[in-house]
Design a protein around this nucleic acid. Structure first.
Lengths: 195, 195
DNA sequence: CGCAAAATCTAGCACTGCTAGACATCCGAG
DNA sequence: CTCGGATGTCTAGCAGTGCTAGATTTTGCG
């Protein structure tokens, strides 16, 4: 029993080691550099060991993505302003900074198509947490509007800004103004900056 | 001189043939199916011929993307409502339908990272046209706001919705409501549906 | 017609994700 | 302590990728 446990524990550790190595490699050199060979070399095992833990490379990326959602959720939670300030702005700024500082991780989470069950199936808890933080940020400005749909709009807008910026498709000149305009538009008729 | 011209013309035709074949293959089976071998087979030439027209596979995808921007620009222009109706809504609906009906093409245009010179360099005319159509759609609701920055926000929101929908990351239940909420928010304090 | 030049193809490289089968290591029974 | 089966790991290889050097064919002019 104890031996069995030790093995399972070691296996779990190696499982996490693979995920961490994949994320690090991707964040340092991009996902193109994450080949099964390089990843195997980095964790100091041969390729088939990777396949004993994950069904394929996609599954590894998916695991990285899901844990990335956990990171994002924690970041958004930390970013909740103490009092008075705009939760919406705080969340938006935190979200965009996450996307800007960890583009490879963000890519795995929300750009690369993965069979993560977003729909009716079992959505990973990390994902629900992250979305929940966005919902909480939108709630103060919802007015009469549908909270979930409005949050999806908020998320989509942030996601669009994040990805188009990352691709160099938006003019850096408007970086500040853009967020102000978005927040102003979403905040029930407040079209001034600041809120 | 005539012979030279004929050759150049035939070359140009084949150039376009390659682009069309790549786009068709991508739209039918996804970009993963667009390998240099399959593409060469489809145009009935060997692989090196592709490389005599394009520097590499990326350049082919880029060419498809740029022409796709032309398609989008024309679609948006056609979608301009005759009178009275919301240009913003018309453009948004046309944009999202384009993304929904031609996901592979949209991917090449705005998702896959390509070295298309969006920034200070020579931006392709097709791209300027498409963005110009969005500017024209936003103009009626700009109010005091910066037109270009506001258009970028509009575009980003549409892009975010398009890509997150494509990835199955948004709930279909909110499909209608989402667009209404976005348009309402962007339209200077109009938070009702319709405009 | 003959022949250089231009166009095209064949065959191959180094790489990818993935896996069958050989090999090594481990743990418990005797 | 030793042996044998089970578990774990690795070596070597497959089919496919983007890309290209060099052989081969086609072209159009003198």
């Amino acid at each position: 029993m104890s031996i069995q446990n030790r093995r399972e524990r070691e296996r779990a550790e190696r499982h996490q080691l693979i995920i961490d190595a994949a994320r690090e490699l991707a964040e340092e050199e991009g996902w193109d550099a994450v080949t099964t060979r390089r990843l195997a070399e980095k964790v100091e095992y041969s390729q088939p060991v990777l396949y004993s833990h994950f069904k394929g490379k996609d599954a590894i990326v998916r695991a990285v993505a899901i844990q990335g959602c956990g990171d994002l959720a924690r970041l958004l939670r930390k970013a909740r302003p103490s009092r008075g300030e705009s939760r919406l702005r705080a969340a938006a700024e935190a979200y965009l900074e996450f996307a800007r500082r960890r583009p490879a991780l963000y890519d795995a989470m929300f750009v690369q198509q993965s069979d993560i069950p977003w729909g009716t199936d079992e959505v990973p808890q990390e994902l629900l947490d992250a979305f929940g933080e966005l919902v909480a940020a939108v709630e103060p400005v919802r007015g009469e509007r549908d909270l979930e749909a409005l949050t999806e709009v908020f998320w989509s807008s942030l996601h669009g800004i994040a990805t188009l910026m990352q691709g160099g498709r938006l003019r850096p000149v408007h970086d500040e103004n853009r967020l102000d305009l978005l927040l102003g538009a979403l905040s029930l008729g407040q079209h001034e900056n600041g809120l």
